[in-house]
């Protein structure tokens, strides 16, 4: 039932995206998130879309799979579009019917912002799809290292992240199991009137919460039993290595950025 979720999921493959160092991948996605905001007309958004599309292609993650997984997000994107259509009142009136009027500016804004939103989500999911959770946290930990000087708990933050990422699939599995067990007891999660479906959440959420608390406690005990005492003096088994792919990928983004600045109006 939760089979189609792609958030926090890693898909193993051999591709430039997979080969990149997690640090450069995180930087890349972070820069992309900033760069997206440079675009402000059809050409620049087109350029961005092409770039993102090529990145997705190069990652060798099946496109159908990504789009299937993003179906829920698409609703959000559509919602944004509709919101803009009705509430941005700029430019000429394109359409008028009773109290509703749609403006040219609204249409443009709506499309641009939805495209921007969609590309952002696509790129960030690409990060988690091509990087194992452990790599991501390793990368973040190293990138945030300078903050240690101001007593920022970098290691703890990284640990928290890796634990939560690690337990997403477990939680999904658990959700699936409990849903099945309650379905067998006559709960209908899909179909049926809305009122019943909302009520169906309780028999799902309570066991899920109780299970999570129990697991958290067990995990803490297991970590302590294995002598965990924070990040002090810890060495790394997986060493991060910057290679040619990383430099090339960042250069490509730099070129795209330059083009965006050039073509923006």
């Amino acid at each position: 039932m939760m089979e189609k979720m792609i958030f926090g999921r890693y898909i193993p493959a051999v591709s430039p995206m997979h080969r990149m160092d997690p640090r450069s991948k995180i930087i890349l996605v972070f820069l992309f998130v900033c760069v997206v905001f440079i675009a402000n007309n059809a050409i620049t958004y087109g350029l961005l879309a092409i770039y993102t599309f090529l990145m997705v292609l190069s990652s060798k993650v099946p496109i159908r799979f990504i789009l299937g997984g993003l179906r829920i997000v698409l609703w959000l994107v559509l919602f944004t579009l509709v919101l803009h259509l009705f509430f941005t009142k700029e430019g000429e009136v394109l359409f008028h019917w009773g109290a509703i009027s749609i403006y040219e500016g609204g249409l443009k804004q709506g499309i641009f912002i939805s495209v921007r939103f969609f590309l952002l989500i696509l790129m960030t999911s690409l990060l988690t799809l091509t990087t194992t959770p452990i790599e991501i946290t390793d990368g973040i930990e190293v990138l945030l290292n300078p903050l240690k000087k101001i007593k920022f708990p970098v290691h703890e933050l990284a640990l928290m992240m890796s634990i939560s990422l690690r337990f997403i699939p477990t939680l999904m599995e658990e959700t699936d199991k409990i849903m099945k067990a309650q379905t067998a007891r006559g709960v209908e999660f899909s179909g049926g009137p809305i009122k019943d479906r909302v009520k169906a959440i309780i028999p799902l959420l309570i066991p899920l919460f109780i299970g999570s608390f129990k697991r958290a406690e067990e995990l803490a005990t297991a970590m302590e039993a294995r002598g965990y005492r924070g990040g002090e003096g810890r060495t790394k088994y997986r060493q991060l290595r910057w290679s040619l792919v990383d430099t090339v990928m960042l250069l490509i983004l730099a070129v795209v950025t330059a083009a965006l600045v050039l073509f923006r109006s």
Partner: peptide
């Protein structure tokens, strides 16, 4: 058809 799943105590709420 009633099913008793593995570790059914997880379904109590």
């Amino acid at each position: 058809v009633g099913i008793v799943f593995q570790f059914p105590e997880h379904q109590l709420f």
